[in-house]
Write a protein that binds this DNA or RNA. Structure first.
Lengths: 221, 221
DNA sequence: ACGATGGTTCGGCTATCATCGAACCATGAG
DNA sequence: CTCATGGTTCGATGATAGCCGAACCATCGT
């Protein structure tokens, strides 16, 4: 009869036990893959795929493709707020989810295509965002160029390409963004050139030297 | 698989279009009857009854019986918070609902069993709560007794009875509580005795005299 | 006591939707 | 190129739940 905001539509998306368990698993802001969410919720991947499609369609989840993986995360803080409002009704708290790769070395630093990933990569990206090296739409600021120049990454040194100079890439182990794009590649190249780190053979592990790690952390501040 | 808080259960209660429309109608804190909610949501009373039972069972709504009526209201502020969190997803705002009796005189003041209802009754109750005449569990404070004594309602004047001295009664037109119980009755009796108001014949209307209304408002502060 | 009204219960119909098997598409590794 | 893996689409099945007609119970007013 009366028409108000269509709160039933969103509520219905949360009302399914499988979907709600997915949302709870994503409450810490990480991004998980479809199969992870499937096994986590105890359904087959087809079923999970259907649920995830609904959630993305309803703009409750955001999705980011990464090679043959698709990482799903909450669409925003308002989604988390909604889940919290629902959790008020049941007093017991949620239990966290274990995740991530096994090898600590991979967790710490590795190559993602051609740029730095893992804890170190995420630290770089976080720092760059928070210290104003980058704008919200991932442009490089004055401050940013001066910082990147400090390790030899200058505008002139970047190859001419239609590839975006700076891109955020979703991190596999940290489930957060790290720095990708031309600058991401150039930065990783410089880490090798400066001998702050080297790539272990037959592996994606990026091994920092003690001195290299100290310098790196010093550089990002 | 994993067990967290059962947010799906509450979400499912909101997920139905009929139930969500009921909840939206109750967002202003008023209490509505089952039939009102039924016609408001465009379903028959049987259907509405089923929905309301579910909502009450899930502790999303609270119900208060009043003769042959049952007044439903949100179970608490946390329910309103939940609805708000859901409304964030759709930008357009809710539209209010019209309600209430037709006769303005009845709206203003009338007898509810043996005590005062309507705008004047609600005003008394609100004022008594906010000025500390009553405790949270509806006991009468020192201040309260001194105020009630001012119009001749004293502890000694109340009849010995197992009926609670002070009770909150849900108001029909205002959809808020007014003052009931022994004190409610005694107060109304004094209004008539003091000639601040009189009861219209063959009606529930309580007609205040201009002087009486002035004195009444002065009394409650 | 009786009718009118508010509200609930019951039973059957129907529609929606979650689920999974199977087949299919896309990407990455060797 | 070929295989393995992540993910989606399709179709059939089964369960859930909303809906209303009809009957029933309770309360109010006269």
């Amino acid at each position: 009869m009366r028409e108000g905001p269509d709160i039933a539509r969103i509520a219905a998306l949360v009302a399914d036990p499988v979907r709600s368990s997915m949302l709870l698993a994503l409450m810490d802001g990480r991004a998980l893959t479809a199969t992870e969410l499937a096994s986590l919720s105890g359904v087959t991947k087809q079923t999970a795929s259907g649920h995830l499609a609904k959630l993305v369609d309803g703009e409750v989840l955001a999705v980011e493709a990464q090679g043959r993986h698709r990482y799903f995360r909450l669409a925003g803080a308002h989604v988390a707020a909604l889940i919290e409002a629902l959790m008020v009704f049941s007093s017991d708290a949620a239990s966290p989810v274990r995740t991530g790769p096994k090898e600590p070395a991979l967790r710490k630093a590795r190559v993602c295509y051609d740029h730095l990933a893992g804890e170190m990569g995420v630290a770089l990206y976080d720092r760059a965002r928070e210290a104003g090296w980058l704008t919200d739409d991932l442009g490089v600021t004055e401050v940013g160029w001066s910082r990147f120049s400090a390790i030899g990454v200058t505008p002139d040194s970047l190859p001419r390409s239609n590839r975006p100079p700076c891109r955020a890439c979703l991190d596999w182990s940290q489930r957060r963004h790290h720095l990708a794009g031309l600058i991401g590649k150039a930065t990783l190249d410089r880490l090798f050139a400066l001998s702050w780190a080297r790539r272990l053979p037959a592996s994606r592990v990026v091994a920092f030297t003690p001195e290299g790690e100290r310098r790196f952390r010093e550089w990002i501040g």
